[in-house]
Computed example of a mutant assay.
Amino acid sequence: MRIQEWPSAERPREKLLAGGAGALSDAELLALILGSGVRGHDAVGTARRLLAEHGPLASLLEQPPARLLRMRGIGTARACALKAALELAARSQMADLERGGAVTDPPSAGRYLAQRLRGRPHEVFAAMFLNSRHAVIGFEELFQGTVDGAEVHPRVLVRRAMHHNAAAVIVGHNHPSGHAEPSASDRAVTQRLKQALALIDVRLIDHFVIGDGKPVSMAIRGWV
């Protein structure tokens, strides 16, 4: 049965118009972007299969375009639509943070840093400076390096934190290779930065490593 033949209250578009986007499941939202299904499956069925094989939703959406194109049911147009939808959401969130919005959870900070740093041809180390309410009061790219790394100086981060009168800091850097797994050097630098910031009573909240997929939070790993 085609989606057009479903009861109106069950169709994704009608559900969205009646109850808002929050009323839809991940599969239904994804189906709206896909627009149609593959042979033998409607858009919702195709979306459910994609989530079952490549999900959860965040993992699917964060795949690079080349990988999306290899998934059955996602061609060039749909891959572009998915990446465009994710980019719109990221830019909306970035605009909110840059207007002084609060960082309320680790994923929001990770997405912000990914928006800024992902895809760079060389390693870039950046910092988000927060006030006591964890609102963003500054963002700076502090160090740049090669495809293999960037030298990080704790004294520079401390000086910039004092300049912004920050109460807390979130740092991040990208791995141009696309592999976001933190290295032993990344972990060591994190501890040096944490100790240096503690001397001026500034808290290091997290250190994110940005690659092709989901940003890796060192705080979640217990390394901050």
Results as ranks from 00 to 15, higher is better:
residue 67 R to P: 00
residue 179 H to N: 14
residue 66 A to R: 13
residue 219 A to E: 11
residue 219 A to I: 02
residue 197 L to S: 09
residue 16 L to K: 13
residue 108 S to F: 01
residue 120 R to P: 03
residue 131 N to R: 03
residue 209 V to P: 01
residue 79 A to F: 08
residue 5 E to Q: 15
residue 162 M to V: 15
residue 103 V to K: 00
residue 88 L to T: 13
residue 50 L to I: 00
residue 43 A to K: 00
residue 219 A to R: 12
residue 127 A to L: 05
residue 212 D to C: 07
residue 3 I to R: 10
residue 60 L to Y: 00
residue 54 H to Y: 06
residue 154 P to C: 13
residue 70 R to M: 10
residue 75 G to N: 05
residue 45 G to F: 04
residue 213 G to D: 11
residue 56 P to W: 05
residue 64 P to G: 10
residue 156 V to D: 14
residue 103 V to H: 04
residue 87 E to T: 15
residue 143 F to I: 07
residue 173 H to Y: 10
residue 62 E to L: 01
residue 147 V to L: 03
residue 210 I to Q: 02
residue 100 G to H: 07
residue 33 I to D: 03
residue 28 E to A: 02
residue 29 L to I: 11
residue 22 G to M: 14
residue 35 G to K: 04
residue 206 D to A: 15
residue 77 A to G: 13
residue 186 D to I: 02
residue 167 A to W: 14
residue 29 L to T: 13
residue 82 L to Y: 01
residue 105 D to S: 07
residue 112 Y to R: 03
residue 199 L to Y: 10
residue 115 Q to D: 15
residue 73 G to Y: 08
residue 167 A to F: 09
residue 20 G to K: 06
residue 25 S to W: 05
residue 131 N to Y: 12
residue 31 A to F: 02
residue 120 R to D: 07
residue 8 S to E: 07
residue 107 P to C: 02
residue 31 A to G: 12
residue 136 V to L: 11
residue 94 M to K: 13
residue 210 I to A: 07
residue 178 G to Q: 05
residue 88 L to P: 10
residue 140 E to R: 12
residue 133 R to V: 12
residue 224 V to A: 07
residue 160 R to S: 14
residue 65 P to M: 09
residue 62 E to G: 00
residue 122 H to Y: 14
residue 93 Q to R: 06
residue 32 L to M: 14
residue 187 R to E: 08
residue 188 A to V: 05
residue 174 N to P: 06
residue 135 A to N: 12
residue 71 M to Q: 05
residue 56 P to A: 03
residue 26 D to A: 03
residue 117 L to Q: 08
residue 185 S to Q: 03
residue 195 Q to K: 14
residue 132 S to G: 14
residue 40 G to V: 06
residue 133 R to N: 14
residue 214 K to F: 04
residue 79 A to D: 01
residue 183 S to V: 04
residue 215 P to V: 00
residue 212 D to S: 08
residue 58 A to K: 11
residue 202 V to Q: 11
residue 15 K to M: 12
residue 168 A to V: 09
residue 162 M to A: 15
residue 9 A to Y: 11
residue 124 V to N: 08
residue 50 L to Y: 00
residue 27 A to S: 13
residue 51 L to V: 01
